[in-house]
Nucleic acid binder design. Structure first.
Length: 330
DNA sequence: AAGTACCTCAACCGCATACTG
DNA sequence: CCAGTATGCGGTTGAGGTACT
């Protein structure tokens, strides 16, 4: 026979915890430690199941829990870790001291996820949403359509109309260029063809060097800390699944397991954060500000990505007054 | 001020794995 | 080794709060 059941008692209280219950639980754990949650619930005179007690303690009462809003740094780290670990909230939480898996999960679902979607990034794959490809075609079609109409109606009879159309054409061209960049390079972390094309063998290197990827002639791999410390991860992603081929110490290829990413490597992610893809606070922040956040090392030169963000920001700002572009992009 | 829609997050549910006897 | 339970984890829910009309 195994252990007796945990939560089969009827009449066990559910729902929000009262301050009295919190106090009972805290006092008991402070005095006797955690141990078995089931017996703890009984000994602490809590009419709760052990599961509920554990949840309350780990997500709320634990003394080392950090309260308050997530910092920009934490937000970046969560995005980076999620791109490697996926929805492994407890593992992600392990790299954010004081934060619980539940808290991170909620933050992801209510904030980061929406922001990424808003930016046209699939939060599951961290790649561009496929409808951006359609957007490119759409922009082209709309552009042709509008130019055609405007040319017929305004341009030839009105020099100002011509000027407007030229401006519009330039904007169309700009939009298409930016979409092309986004589609081809910027968000293609984890895309096998991208990795192959750039001799970037380590998916984590891709994450660490994401800002330097665009249009650089020097492979990001050579700048990575991993390159200076071979033996961590130096692999080629072999398919479109979530695993990469993993060679430890340069031999014995084996499947790369996201769960076994070395802590050193993940620490590198923490120490070399991406520029924030999204703003941490609700107030509007420009892409440029996000770029410059706390990541001076990677933005000491005006990178192509910087230019991209500037262009993107200008584009949105210029088109905010009832333009159809804003509607399309948002 | 009242009603409604939306958002946040604590807590629950169910499944997978670890553990015990 | 096996049966059965505890624990941990990720997904989901819904109450309460806030913003908007």
């Amino acid at each position: 026979m195994g252990r007796p059941p945990c939560c089969d008692e009827s009449g066990v209280k559910k729902g929000p915890w009262t301050p009295e219950e919190d106090e009972k639980l805290s006092n008991y754990i402070n005095k006797y430690g955690q141990g078995s949650w089931r017996t703890l619930a009984k000994r602490a005179s809590l009419n709760r199941c052990g599961k509920s007690c554990r949840l309350r303690w780990t997500n709320y009462l634990r003394p080392d829990i950090k309260r308050g809003k997530f910092t920009e740094e934490e937000e970046r780290l969560i995005i980076n870790l999620h791109s490697v670990l996926g929805n492994k909230w407890s593992k992600i939480a392990g790299h954010l001291p004081g934060r619980t898996d539940n808290e991170i999960k909620n933050f992801w679902n209510t904030n980061i996820r929406k922001k990424l979607l808003h930016m046209g990034i699939d939060p599951e794959t961290h790649k561009p949403r496929t409808d951006f490809n359609h957007l490119m075609n759409l922009a082209h079609l709309i552009g042709m359509s509008n130019l055609g109409n405007n040319v017929a109606m305004n341009t030839w009879s009105n020099p100002l109309g011509l000027q407007a159309d030229v401006t519009q054409l330039a904007k169309l061209q700009q939009l298409q260029n930016m979409l092309q960049i986004m589609n081809n390079s910027f968000f293609n972390i984890g895309n096998p063809s991208f990795l192959g094309n750039h001799s970037l063998n380590n998916p984590l290197d891709a994450i660490l060097n994401r800002t330097n990827i665009i249009q650089t002639t020097e492979p990001a791999f050579f700048r990575s800390q991993e390159y200076a410390n071979p033996g961590l991860l130096s692999q080629t992603r072999s398919d479109s699944s979530k695993s990469w081929t993993y060679v430890e110490g340069g031999s014995n290829p084996q499947e790369f397991d996201c769960n076994k990413v070395s802590s050193t490597t993940l620490e590198n992610i923490a120490e070399n954060p991406l520029p924030a893809l999204v703003a941490c606070s609700p107030e509007k922040k420009t892409f440029n500000q996000m770029e410059n956040g706390s990541n001076t090392a990677q933005t000491s030169i005006q990178s192509p990505s910087n230019t991209f963000f500037n262009d993107w920001e200008k584009f949105l700002d210029n088109e905010t007054s009832g333009s159809y572009w804003k509607e399309i992009l948002e």
